Amino acid sequence: MSEPTAPQVPAMSALRRQALRHHLMNEIERPARRPRRMLVLAPAAGVLAVAVAAGAIAQPWAPDSAPLIVTVEQGDRSGATLLLNRMAAAAADTPDPTSGEGEYVYIRSRGAFAELGDGPARLQPVHEREIWIPRNERGDGLLRQPFLNVPIIGVIPERETLTDVTPNAALVDLPSNPDALLEKLYRERDERGRGNSRDGAAFTAIGDILRESLVPPQTTVALYQAAAKIPGVEVVRGVTDAAGRRGVAVAHTERSQRKEWIFDEQTYEYLGERSYLVADTADGPAGTVLGTTAVLQRAVVSNLGQRPER
């Protein structure tokens, strides 16, 4: 199920310590009057481009542009277990994506983040992102993206070496039994003692793994089966990812925010993520988009900084 040289390291511990972290905003209390800040997605959230509900791609915009609003569709909770188990069955028949030679996992993505503060949330300009993660042994990784100045983190250079990164093999070294996997994620949430609920934290953790790693088929099966057991998970259809690809989403809602994993409806290939408000809040009306991503390429490469053929 997992690569044999992987050390026993708790899943996601290193990626969560890298420059961009998806659920950082969920780990802090909001003051009554908030300074402007960026909602940042995990390194696992590649580069995001913005798509409207109808499927058209929005162009990069100025920071003072109007918020992006999508229609809040009704989720289908009864169909979530059926879909996730069907996806698990399909994943069991796919080839291992980590086969072949190479020391680094390469992931290219695109996306946009929302800036939160006094007034409605507004997405920042679209940018592309590339990350190199050690495949088997803990060590240095690499992040490439346009120069950013994220208020809560500071300056993120165009090229940044990521030190002491948990390898991909350790990130996907998870229990094959879905009940044991879910219990592990709940236990890690309880050890932190803050942030999202146990169910919300488990959903986020599974999304982190799906988004920015190469996952063996058996682990993918366990992740989908575990997700099917999370209360409140639902299906949302007719969703568009950040590259304009339409698909079906597996979603979970907490604190007036819906998070979606988007998949191709025919092949069940992972496409990207989207998050938005489902109720009116201080950050904007229902439908305000807080983040949108699209994973464009995954590969194994031999050298740090090497790009595969597109």
Rank of each mutant, 00 (worst) to 15 (best):
G119M: 07
Q225D: 06
S78G: 13
E3R: 15
D64N: 12
R298K: 14
E260W: 12
R21W: 13
G291C: 03
I209S: 02
D173I: 02
A121D: 08
P63M: 07
A121S: 05
Y270C: 07
A294V: 08
G75V: 11
K259F: 06
I133H: 02
E27W: 11
L68P: 00
E27H: 14
E188Y: 07
T267K: 14
R310A: 11
E254L: 12
R77H: 12
D208E: 15
A114F: 05
A249V: 13
V105C: 06
A227E: 13
S2T: 11
R187I: 10
A62H: 08
H252D: 02
G195W: 02
E27P: 01
V248H: 00
G244Q: 02
S302H: 15
D208N: 06
Y104P: 00
V236F: 00
R16T: 02
A58W: 09
R30Q: 10
R192N: 10
V235D: 07
A249L: 13
G55Q: 03
P10N: 11
M12L: 15
A243K: 09
Y106C: 01
A169L: 04
Y224L: 03
A58K: 09
L210P: 03
Y270T: 00
A169H: 01
P157E: 14
P178F: 04
A90H: 10
V239R: 14
V70C: 01
E212N: 12
L223A: 08
T5E: 15
K184C: 05
W61C: 04
L185C: 00
P308N: 07
